[in-house]
Design a protein around this nucleic acid. Structure first.
Length: 258
DNA sequence: GCGACAG
DNA sequence: ATCTTGTCGC
């Protein structure tokens, strides 16, 4: 049984985010990048509802790597009907049920969880990365592939993109909470645009549960050796796509009249 | 009122 | 996210 249920609508989903975020824990010293332990990537793949009546599906994967050498230690997947529509800012309700199921099926402790999406760089400072952390108690960081309107809008000092070299990064600002439209409010840094490969588009890193921005960035840097995205994310992405493909193969097109 | 908007 | 052809580079 899931420790939570799906909200009836967007308004209820937002209320729940505001209630849950009180439990978000701040940065704490954890194993540094590469230290003995595990690091887990989670990701989700979708199948649109078929015009023939096939249900919308969501497939999640959790892939555990040895934090020291990034070799795979364990993995699990979960497939189910999409429980919530895609609404920017409310992704957690669409993706987390399946992710929680996959994480629960692992045989080893996940360690640090690397999410595909945002953490505190979110309209209400509670992206799916924070949500997952609060629900599970695990340390989480968010690494997104594209900018989020609320996250990268330079509200304060003009802010350009990060430098061209691997490791270069630039702050992601968000309006200070509680003062919408207040030009005097000091924008706060909610994440980093991090260049993980020379001359390649940056990724967007933000803190989740029990991990600060600096540590989130350090871990992301460590996990991106030869590619733009963390090895955890790449593995999880492949795994959930495969799981989705297998699920579709077993659920043929429904036949009329039976 | 319209646009923008993680995955 | 997913749908898709061709193309550039190691």
């Amino acid at each position: 049984m899931p420790a939570h249920t799906t909200p009836a609508d967007a308004a209820e989903a937002v209320e729940r985010q505001l209630a849950l975020r009180r439990f978000l824990l701040p940065d704490e010293p954890g194993p540094p990048p590469g230290a003995p332990g595990t690091v887990t990537g989670v990701d989700v793949a979708y199948a649109e509802p078929g015009a023939d009546g096939a249900p919308g599906l969501v497939a999640a994967a959790a892939v555990v790597l040895d934090a020291a050498d990034l070799t795979e230690v364990d993995r699990a997947v979960a497939v189910g009907a999409a429980p919530f529509p895609y609404v920017p800012g409310l992704l957690a309700y669409r993706e987390l049920p399946a992710v929680l199921e996959a994480l629960a099926a692992l045989d080893v402790p996940p360690g640090l969880v690397v999410c595909d999406g945002y953490g505190v760089a979110h309209p209400r400072r509670f992206g799916l990365t924070c949500h997952l952390g609060v629900l599970t108690g695990l340390r989480t960081i968010g690494v997104a592939k594209t900018p989020f309107r609320m996250a990268d809008t330079p509200v304060g000092p003009p802010q350009g993109p990060p430098g061209p070299e691997r490791g270069d990064h630039a702050p992601l600002y968000a309006p200070a909470p509680g003062s919408p439209g207040d030009a005097d409010a000091t924008p706060e840094v909610v994440g980093s645009a991090l260049r993980t490969r020379r001359g390649v588009k940056p990724v967007y890193v933000s803190a989740g549960h029990r991990v600060g921005l600096a540590a989130a960035r350090a871990h992301t840097f460590h996990l991106t050796r030869g590619f733009r995205l963390p090895e955890t994310t790449r593995r999880a992405d492949r795994a959930c796509r495969d799981a989705l493909a297998r699920a579709r193969a077993e659920l043929p097109t429904p036949r009329r009249g039976g």
